[in-house]
Design a protein around this nucleic acid. Structure first.
Lengths: 244, 244
DNA sequence: GACTTTTAAATGTCAGACAAATGAAAAATG
DNA sequence: CATTTTTCATTTGTCTGACATTTAAAAGTC
């Protein structure tokens, strides 16, 4: 962890990389205390601000946490699922918005992954998961709901479905795919009729999960995907006509 | 993007958060140039080192890139799939290694997601994908291959399968699940016989993809998952006996 | 006009300093 | 002696000012 070529540019990046490697390799274990900034500056033969920039890079990735005071310092952070979720969601969202990913591509990925969870969820969902889904369905049926709120509730519904699989790794992986779709979904205007159709499918899904009917969940998800993509095509069509 | 409560701690984190919000919201678009460090210091009423720490936090997440020189500065970075891949892989790997995720949980998630790709891959895989898979199968059959190299080739094989779906969003989401398994897989000792079994299943998968037989791919993946989990159980059993 | 030199602007780095938090040791108190 | 209070050293957070390096544009030179 002491290697540092004498390329006097990007020193903080090199130091961050060295410490990161030590963490990933297990050389630095969870809750281990790093040397103080002054000591690190001495070890790496750089100034304290440079060390600090390196540490901030690591803090941005939730790899370390810092604490002030006598017994303070920088500690290797236990990466928890919650932090990983939010990182994944931002990354996925930006990835989609910055790379002109088509609605179809994102939608296909999302539903493919979600369908992968369906059989497990049908088997393991708890009453809690079902209750959450019913609540969201009820919320979606409220009149006067904005499109944004409808989409947010839609995300909550699908997250409950995914969480029902009882596999935190799956939930983590899916978080990005489901949440990153929201900005794209927000571009769709949901008419009263389209909301009705979606709610009907959501109800079918909830009922099927209730009955532990994996096949029926899958069928409903396929229909939902088809319908969602159709809605997006309609929006695009409408926009094309308006501008043309 | 100018809000900054007068809580004089974590200033760099607050500034990073403000700029990040501006990027996510689209207020700052790709390739937009941020004000110079001196200007930012002036705007936020902090010193330049503090601004720099904030910028390094963003750079660590690939949200910005910096360039020296007269026309240099910090620019909003287009988050590309490659950067997102590697971020996801580190995060997933650390998440698994730091949270004592069981082999079964990780394995289940991985194969559930991979099976989600299988039908798409059967439909869209190109000769290139098949060639990669055949190459890796050949590599796996070489005698004298270390367990680590065998696992690395296994990862490459499965990535080709996933990439065959031709959906970059899927590939991105899967990257974490597939690669993060590698350290866990490395704990398994692959006997000559177990390698043979895995290679046979890999061959079945490649053949099925070649024939565009989605159902057969799925069946082989299920068998591979079962077999992998059995191998892990055997290792655990052996360890238990040794220590007991 | 083509090439070289200068210059200005920006990031990268450094040195030294002070503020603030914090836990532990030392001192005071009953 | 036990408990509370005070002091203090350590560490991070921030600031100021400076210099080095890179880079592209402007100025100068042939």
């Amino acid at each position: 962890m002491k290697i540092d070529p004498q390329n006097p540019a990007d020193l903080s990046a090199q130091i961050a990389q060295a410490i990161k490697a030590a963490i990933v390799s297990g050389e630095l274990i969870v809750d281990a205390r790093l040397p103080s900034e002054a000591e690190l500056a001495d070890q790496f033969q750089v100034s304290r601000p440079t060390v600090r920039e390196a540490l901030k890079r690591l803090a941005a990735q939730s790899l370390i946490r810092t604490q002030r005071g006598a017994t303070g310092g920088a500690f290797v952070n236990r990466l928890n699922f919650e932090d990983a979720y939010s990182q994944q969601i931002t990354t996925s969202t930006l990835l989609l918005s910055m790379n002109a990913v088509s609605f179809d591509t994102a939608c296909e990925a999302r539903y493919a992954l979600e369908r992968a969870c369906a059989p497990l969820s049908a088997e393991r969902r708890t009453p809690d998961h079902l209750a959450t889904m019913r609540t969201e369905i009820f919320r979606q049926s409220q009149p006067g709901l904005t499109d944004e709120a409808f989409c947010a509730s839609d995300v909550a519904f699908h997250r409950a479905l995914v969480d029902g699989a009882g596999n935190p790794v799956l939930s983590y992986q899916l978080a990005g795919a489901v949440e990153a779709m929201q900005p794209l979904m927000n571009m769709i205007t949901f008419s009263a009729r389209s909301r009705e159709s979606i709610i009907a499918l959501h109800t079918r899904i909830a009922d099927a999960l209730d009955a532990r009917a994996a096949g029926e969940v899958d069928a409903a998800l396929v229909e939902l995907e088809t319908y969602t993509r159709q809605l997006a095509r309609d929006v695009a069509e409408r926009r094309r006509k308006q501008s043309g």
